[in-house]
């Protein structure tokens, strides 16, 4: 015990040892309250998601039961319905195609741009930069109307391509921004040396710098995928049936008579599950992506 006190007095006040010594005394009322608060918080976050998944696994009678049923025999009935009939599966496929293609395109367009912005000096660069970042703030409803007119004129309504292009409005700035950060963190000497050796800029970029920047590229790609997968407004306006994405299909359960809660929640579960897993993978970078790098 005395050695602990010694440690606290001799080491710096903020050191880990001091903190540990402080935390060592028995559990106090404050600690119990804090644990309770943490558990409540976790419950608050998980409850809606739990309720979605459990409703997807309940029979209709159990869904409408008051008081609600917490212990039940799970049924795969709704998932089977969702897979066998209707448009849910094609809509998930549409979402997958649109989100993947838009992400891929954004990475192809965005990474060389980010590299050049990180490495070169030119006039008007900061203006270009501001403009790219300011795209984060444009409300989609502002461009949704002209997109609709444009897609109608180009016969792109209800085509996946329309959405793939529309999603570039937020995906390209995101890739550029996050990858600039990544390229900056790679010492310039690395590609400088190769350039002196006579390799072309594209080759240096593709064979040396880009491979080093893969972590940042993967993070930005995952975030692009998540944001594209979750998008609703453009999908609602630019698709009818053929290219309809999963969120629009899910929302469609609310129209008409007699909402099929089980099937709707099964669809919701299928939509949310992949993105939640992805987001958890890059949880450290989610905030950076949402704030365009202003908060790390």
């Amino acid at each position: 015990m005395s050695s602990v006190t010694m440690e606290t007095t001799t080491s710096k006040p903020g050191s880990l040892a001091a903190q540990r010594a402080r935390g060592r005394p028995g559990i106090r009322a404050k600690d119990v309250l804090q644990l309770l608060a943490i558990v409540l918080l976790a419950g608050f976050i998980l409850a809606p998601i739990y309720w979605m998944v459990s409703t997807a696994l309940k029979t209709a009678n159990e869904t409408f039961a008051v008081p609600p049923v917490f212990i039940f025999q799970p049924t795969a009935e709704h998932f089977r319905t969702v897979f066998s009939e209707g448009a849910v599966l094609p809509s998930l496929l549409n979402s997958l195609i649109v989100a993947s293609a838009s992400t891929l395109l954004a990475v192809i367009l965005g990474t060389p741009a980010a590299y050049a912005l990180a490495r070169f000096e030119f006039r008007g660069k900061s203006n270009l930069w501001f403009w790219i970042i300011s795209n984060r703030f444009i409300s989609p409803i502002v461009v949704a109307l002209p997109f609709f007119l444009l897609a109608r004129d180009l016969k792109l309504l209800d085509k996946q391509l329309a959405l793939i292009l529309a999603y570039l409005t937020f995906n390209v700035p995101l890739v550029i921004w996050l990858c600039i950060d990544q390229f900056r963190s790679i010492p310039r000497d690395v590609d400088q040396a190769a350039l002196v050796d006579g390799a072309g800029l594209w080759r240096v970029f593709l064979t040396i710098t880009l491979p080093l920047a893969i972590p940042g590229v993967v993070v930005s790609a995952i975030l692009c995928f998540v944001f594209s997968w979750n998008e609703f407004l453009f999908a609602l306006i630019l698709t009818r049936s053929e290219a309809r994405t999963a969120p629009v299909e899910a929302a469609n359960f609310m129209t008409g008579f007699g909402v099929r809660w089980g099937a709707m929640m099964a669809t919701g579960t299928l939509i949310v599950l992949p993105v939640v897993v992805f987001a958890a993978l890059v949880s450290r970078h989610l905030v950076r992506g949402l704030t365009m790098g202003a908060v790390k």
Partner: peptide
């Protein structure tokens, strides 16, 4: 866990709300 609500598709959040 804090990441989950942020990543949850807002459309589905609305549907869960209906429920």
């Amino acid at each position: 866990l804090l990441v989950l609500p942020i990543a949850t598709t807002p459309t589905v959040v609305g549907l869960i709300g209906r429920l």
